[in-house]
Design a protein around this nucleic acid. Structure first.
Lengths: 204, 204
DNA sequence: GGCTCACACTTCGAAGTTGACATGTAGCGT
DNA sequence: ACGCTACATGTCAACTTCGAAGTGTGAGCC
């Protein structure tokens, strides 16, 4: 049912076509929350319309149909929002790989962690830039909008990834042997340069 | 394909039956990474065996079949681990709800955020306790195992949730008006307290 | 006028996931 | 000997998601 409410939620903000909604999924939800392709979006919109939770508000050029949420739809969305399940379904291939990192040799695990840190650092920087612009436009002293709050969540998430990946990377030599049978331990007392780990300052 | 590699990864650690693997999913992966029921596990194990990536290592009492990963399986798992996709598929109903928070009235959004902060704080405390025990057993000064690293990731994630939810909660009155039509803005030029929030010290 | 690109929607087979129903066994306490 | 619980696996229909192939249009550019 999540896809249904994701669409309803996006339409609660403003009317949009299936095409628009697919784009919004890509820009907004894909990375952190939910993924859906247009081949899923269009049929679901049809079903939502059949259930009177949305309606066609306008028709445009290329067969474009702009949908708007109905009162019934708002009610349904509200009910869903106010009744969260005890446990949420989570599916995260990235975290899954983290869990399985111990199946790799130390050097390979470290290499992967470097990649993770790098990739997330890049994302962090990009988002930071966008947020800075956003904040500048809003004017100093303005209260953060809901959008800004979600961005803040993203900022902190990326920062967490970067920090954690670097931390894990810098400790992995030791952890390597700890995983299973102590293979080549003991000889590993070599100098651990203990890279200061740029312990980046908290996001902003 | 993720389920397949999740199983392979768990089996890389130690041989297990379908029943064991289902339990492991519940204990280890369910909350953060991936969910699978036994009705998915058993058929997949059969397929993995057919592909020679695992094999039946032993048979026990109640028709129990203990599977072990083969060399071919290790190779395949390794290949998968070393070739991560550019973007990972993520599905998180909780975060989805965060994104849609702006569809609620301020008071309701705040109530929900309080629940979120509370729930995550509870999880944080539970995990902290378990980690403390774990660390005590390992002895002070010992290098963190891979398991410990994953726990650290969990710790930081929960802390992030708590911090963010509280921060958002404390700012939401302002944000309320920002969502759609600027209702009662402008009067809100108040001091913007520290942004970064409590920014807890990195665990250890 | 022709080119290209973004816009906009449709369809469908394959694969993955869920939830329920189904079946039976070993071990333990009383 | 009886009953309970955890162990252990199998199956299947309904539903969701994915990935690819397909159709056509409006707008801007040269």
């Amino acid at each position: 049912m999540s896809l249904r409410y994701a669409l309803l939620g996006l339409l609660a903000d403003e009317p949009a076509s299936g095409y628009d909604l697919t784009k919004k999924f890509e820009r907004l939800l894909q990375r952190y929350a939910w993924h859906a392709q247009h081949s899923q979006v269009y049929p679901e919109l049809t079903r939502l319309a059949a259930d009177r939770l949305v309606e066609v508000a306008a028709e445009g050029p290329r067969g474009r149909r702009t949908y708007a949420i109905t009162d019934l739809g708002r009610e349904d969305l509200r009910r869903w929002m106010l009744n969260p399940p005890e446990f949420f379904s989570v599916r995260n291939e990235f975290v899954l790989r983290l869990f399985l990192l111990s199946t790799l040799e130390p050097e390979q695990a470290k290499a992967l962690l470097r990649l993770v840190a790098e990739a997330n650092d890049k994302e962090l920087k990009e988002l930071t830039d966008r947020v800075r612009q956003f904040d500048a436009n809003a004017g100093p002293g303005a209260a953060p909008s809901m959008q800004r709050m979600v961005a803040e969540f993203g900022l902190r998430s990326f920062q967490l990834m970067v920090d954690w990946a670097r931390w894990a990377h810098d400790h992995i030599d030791d952890a390597a042997a700890a995983g299973k049978p102590a293979r080549n331990r003991a000889k590993r007392t070599t100098a651990r340069a203990k890279r200061p780990g740029p312990r980046t300052a908290p996001a902003r």
